[in-house]
């Protein structure tokens, strides 16, 4: 692929809310190509501020993509333009990935007001907050009133990704493990709403009780600690869930919680980009020093960093 991309053309297409322009802009960010700074500076801050960013996470196979597809349909029925960023893991061996979230959302593929982008985590050092955050803003800037970030909730970097969101849904299903699983550190600690999908399957009620107990122990006893049950494949429970999402989003906006979260997300993204940029420099230094390997690794790292800071 040619590296000489026409930034002006992409910015122009972006302003027209053109799907190709949006897609090209996200690639520019993902591949960290020249001109990306100019592009990001051209985004519309008013649209970004008005956008609701929803994070959806949970174990594999609980129906996140199907639920996301249903949420998209409901937001569309309200006349809202919706963006979806579906993050899947990259293979640690080949660096490749299979991005299959579209399969469950193809009903929206011809709708010009639904933008869906699959992203691979690409094994980046600071997670992919930097590129995912930029993709959220590109979609928001192009008029998306809602952007959903969907990711498999298995590791730290996924927890980081959903922290880019204004509020986060954790989706699980009956049979995904008992309350001890649910007590393990991680995603449950950052979830604002908990959804038991596949609620027609046996064990849904006990799964809901387990989750409710976990929420109570977290000590946030408010009306949002109720566990939601959905059957995404039949569209059941979706309207109630969207109602709760909107109530919670409004309350966060009013209380200043949303502002606080956006600031935190901003810092996280800055850190992510900085680590990514530093990585290139450090890797080059390591390559340059490779002839002399006897020094202690920690000492060498210290030396490299001192060198970099002196050069600044």
């Amino acid at each position: 692929m040619p590296v000489n991309v026409d930034i002006e053309k992409i910015i122009e297409l972006l302003a027209k809310r053109d799907a190709r322009g949006i897609a090209k802009a996200i690639t520019l960010v993902e591949d960290n190509l020249p001109g990306v700074d100019r592009l990001l500076a051209s985004l519309n801050p008013k649209n970004i501020d008005a956008c609701l960013v929803v994070g959806i996470t949970g174990p594999p196979g609980v129906g996140k993509s199907t639920l996301t597809g249903e949420l998209v349909a409901l937001f569309r029925s309200q006349g809202k333009r919706v963006g979806v960023i579906a993050v899947d893991p990259s293979s640690p061996l080949s660096g490749g990935a299979i991005l299959g979230d579209r399969i469950r959302m193809m009903e929206h593929s011809l709708d010009k007001d639904v933008l869906l982008r699959s992203m691979a985590a690409r094994g980046k050092l600071g997670g992919i907050c930097g590129s995912a955050g930029a993709a959220v803003r590109i979609m928001a800037s192009s008029g998306c009133a809602v952007v959903i970030i969907e990711t498999v909730g298995v590791g730290q970097s996924e927890v980081d990704i959903v922290q880019l969101a204004d509020l986060t849904l954790m989706v699980t299903a009956p049979g995904m493990g008992d309350d001890v699983q649910a007590m393990k550190a991680g995603i449950l600690e950052v979830a604002d709403l908990i959804v038991i999908n596949k609620a027609d399957h046996p064990g849904a009620d006990s799964a809901a009780l387990d989750m409710e107990a976990v929420l109570k122990e977290r000590g946030i006893a408010n009306s949002f600690t109720k566990v939601h049950k959905t059957i995404a494949s039949e569209g059941k429970g979706i309207a109630e869930l969207v109602g709760q999402i909107q109530l919670l989003a409004d309350s966060f906006l009013e209380s200043g919680e949303r502002h606080k979260r956006r600031l935190k997300a901003h810092d996280m993204e800055v850190f992510d980009w900085a680590m990514e940029m530093l990585k290139t420099v450090v890797e080059k230094e390591i390559a340059d020093y490779s002839a002399e390997k006897r020094q202690d690794p920690r000492l060498k790292a210290n030396g490299i960093l001192s060198q970099i800071m002196k050069n600044e």
Partner: peptide
């Protein structure tokens, strides 16, 4: 995928 491609299916 095994050859490093990102494959949307």
């Amino acid at each position: 995928r095994d050859h490093g491609f990102e494959v949307v299916y």
